[in-house]
């Protein structure tokens, strides 16, 4: 199954019956898949007039408590920025998929990870976060979609799948026997008072600054809890690692090959693969920093996650960047070379 289609099928398995999209490479397969499947299962697929309209349709369905999603690619996600901020301000659960492409501007259509900051720091205006999940296999594209819906509902916020063109276009076997937790009760939803309760209001306007401050404090209490309890990552050969690679998505797959090769050459290198980009897995990096003497951040960007790695280890060890951009993908050889240079620099050191 294609990565994009795995996301779509997993969303349906997770109980999502509403999808709003707009054509943009490299994620249009998600929309096409939903266009075929939703009508067959009593769901709603609608192609919106723009990504802005699509995210606001998501806002509408989310207000009624039903599971809903949209997907796009980098420029489309920029258009959804205001909507993402409104979803956060109104504490609405939703799933948003970004199959990244090279940027900035119209950029390219090849894979990229240059929306890392956009996803983890500035999806839109105001203090808010999104749960950002980074799959690095088609199986994870499916599993993290279900996980995304569950986390979004549990914490009343947006969960974003941050994939890239390769993940979306890649075909791999997928086990779709995903178990889905039941949806929580949503008393706050606007489904009509049925004349038996006061009206619910879904809103992010608080002209009274004290009230607006309070909503921010409460939201950040939830974010703190999420940071402490929902962080996800994978470690690979880090127990004895003197050099640790930080990489997610496609960059992690490339790095694994390079690590195996480097190990053959006697270099003690390992990898920490963040699965949640927010909340960022600080703990494993901090632990690794006790032993490791250097870190390498392998990214398809000009260096964005590298900042989180430095923050996680309080700059205790040097973190170098190994990257390609614009749609170019770092090769295992390039990563191996970066490992060898780092090892050499350490070699000289001790």
């Amino acid at each position: 199954m294609k990565g994009n289609e795995a996301i779509a099928e997993a969303a349906i398995i997770a109980g999502c019956r509403h999808y709003f999209g707009y054509p943009i490479t490299p994620q249009t397969e998600i929309a096409a898949y939903m266009a075929k499947r939703m009508p067959k299962i009593g769901g709603t697929f609608l192609q919106a007039e723009s990504e802005i309209a699509a995210i606001n349709m998501v806002y509408g369905v989310a207000s009624t408590g039903l599971r809903v999603m949209t997907s796009s690619s980098s420029p489309g996600i920029s258009l959804k920025g205001e909507g993402l901020s409104y979803l956060a301000g109104a504490d609405l659960p939703a799933l948003v998929v970004n199959v990244q492409r090279g940027g900035p501007g119209l950029g390219g259509i090849q894979p990229s990870q240059s929306d890392y900051f956009q996803a983890t720091r500035s999806g839109g205006h105001g203090d808010f976060r999104m749960i950002v999940l980074a799959p690095s296999s088609v199986q994870e594209m499916a599993e993290l979609t279900v996980k995304g819906f569950e986390l979004a509902d549990q914490y009343r916020m947006t969960a974003m799948i941050l994939a890239d063109g390769t993940m979306g276009q890649m075909m791999e076997p997928v086990a779709l026997d995903l178990d889905v937790k039941p949806m929580p009760e949503k008393q706050w939803a606007t489904t009509g008072t049925k004349m038996n309760r006061p009206h619910n209001i879904v809103n992010s306007l608080f002209l009274d600054p004290a009230a607006l401050e309070q909503t921010n404090f409460e939201r950040f209490e939830r974010y703190k809890f999420i940071e402490e309890n929902e962080t996800m990552y994978e470690e690979y050969l880090t127990d004895d690692a003197e050099i640790v690679i930080a990489a997610f998505g496609i960059a992690a797959r490339v790095s694994k090959n390079a690590i195996d090769e480097a190990r053959k050459q006697g270099i003690k290198v390992g990898m920490i693969r963040p699965i949640t980009l927010w909340p960022f897995p600080v703990a494993p990096f901090r632990k690794a920093a006790d032993k490791a003497k250097a870190f390498i951040s392998v990214e398809l960007s000009m260096g964005q996650m590298i900042e989180d790695v430095r923050l996680a280890i309080d700059c205790k060890a040097p973190v170098t960047l190994c990257n390609r951009v614009g749609g170019m993908i770092p090769s295992p050889e390039q990563v191996l070379e970066s490992i060898r240079q780092t090892a050499a620099s350490l070699g000289g050191a001790n």
């Binding site: 509403h18 709003f20 709603t44 609608l46 919106a48 802005i52 309209a53 699509a54 606001n56 349709m57 998501v58 806002y59 509408g60 369905v61 989310a62 207000s63 009624t64 039903l66 809903v68 205001e82 909507g83 409104y86 109104a90 606007t190 489904t191 009509g192 008072t193 009206h199 619910n200 209001i201 879904v202 809103n203 992010s204 306007l205």
Partner: peptide
């Protein structure tokens, strides 16, 4: 007194589309 939703500037018809298509 009915349930109400605040939409972003200009987006009410899109929000309403979502709400209507939900139920």
């Amino acid at each position: 007194n009915c349930d109400m939703i605040e939409a972003a500037h200009g987006r009410a018809p899109a929000v309403a589309t979502g709400v209507k298509r939900a139920n």
